[in-house]
Structure formats: structure tokens, C-alpha cells
Write a protein that binds this DNA or RNA. Structure first.
Length: 104
DNA sequence: CATTTGACTGCGT
DNA sequence: AACGCAGCCAAAT
């Protein structure tokens, strides 16, 4: 059952599931919580297993949404009341990490 | 067991 | 502010 090399996967999903609504955490922070610096490894898990967790609450260190998922993610942020910052132009945006960065 | 890949990060240009 | 390059981690093949 739940026992394999997936221990890391389970841990990542658990942390993401713990992120409260309207709040976000960076990949690097999630990795740090797990005791690792594999921000990319976290992203890899999200790409494979993130479909069952609020993946939109996990963003990049620069405040940008997950690559390729910016549009659906934006809808979730507005629905949950996550403060977004307008980017230079229009279609671009970034998360207000300074105000909504989740720190356990 | 070695190689490739990827929803990343930080620094330099 | 935007783009490119190099570095690090774990899973998948």
C-alpha cells in the first residue's frame, strides 16, 4: 500500500493539502519543509500527483504561477480571494507573496 | 545502476 | 524588467 519511493510524494501532497485557502507557498518552501532543497522535485510531484491537491496554492519564488497553469490558477485565486499583483502589461500577473506567503 | 526529464531557484547580462 | 545559464533533487525509463 502506501509504501515505496513515494514517501516523498506523500509528504509533498500532505504539505500542499495543509496550505490554507487564500494563502500560497513557494516550491522551495515546500521542499524546505520536507527537509530538501529539491524545488524541482516538488514540481515534478505536482505534475504527476498534484491533480488531487490544491496545486494552485503552490507558486514559484518570484511570485509567478505554475508554468503552463497560470490561466486556471488565476481563476482559483480570484475565487478564494488570494491577492494578485498586476504585471507589466495585462495578461501577466503574480501572487502577492509579501502578503499571502504561507509559513507553518 | 546510468541517463533523461521537469508545475524550480538564483545570479548575471 | 525580461532572458539566459548553471546548479540541485527525486521520479521515471
Amino acid at each position: 500500500m502506501a509504501q515505496r519511493a513515494e514517501g516523498f510524494v506523500e509528504a509533498v501532497l500532505a504539505v500542499v493539502a495543509d496550505i490554507p485557502p487564500g494563502t500560497v507557498a513557494t516550491y522551495g518552501d515546500v521542499a524546505a519543509i520536507l527537509g530538501s532543497r529539491g524545488a524541482r522535485a516538488v514540481g515534478q510531484v505536482m505534475a504527476r500527483y498534484g491533480s488531487d491537491v490544491p496545486w494552485w496554492r503552490v507558486v514559484r519564488a518570484g511570485g509567478h504561477p505554475p508554468a503552463g497553469k497560470a490561466e486556471p490558477a488565476r481563476a482559483h485565486y480570484e475565487a478564494e480571494g488570494t491577492p494578485l499583483l498586476p504585471a507589466a502589461g495585462e495578461d501577466g500577473y503574480r501572487i502577492d507573496l509579501a502578503a499571502r506567503r504561507w509559513i507553518p
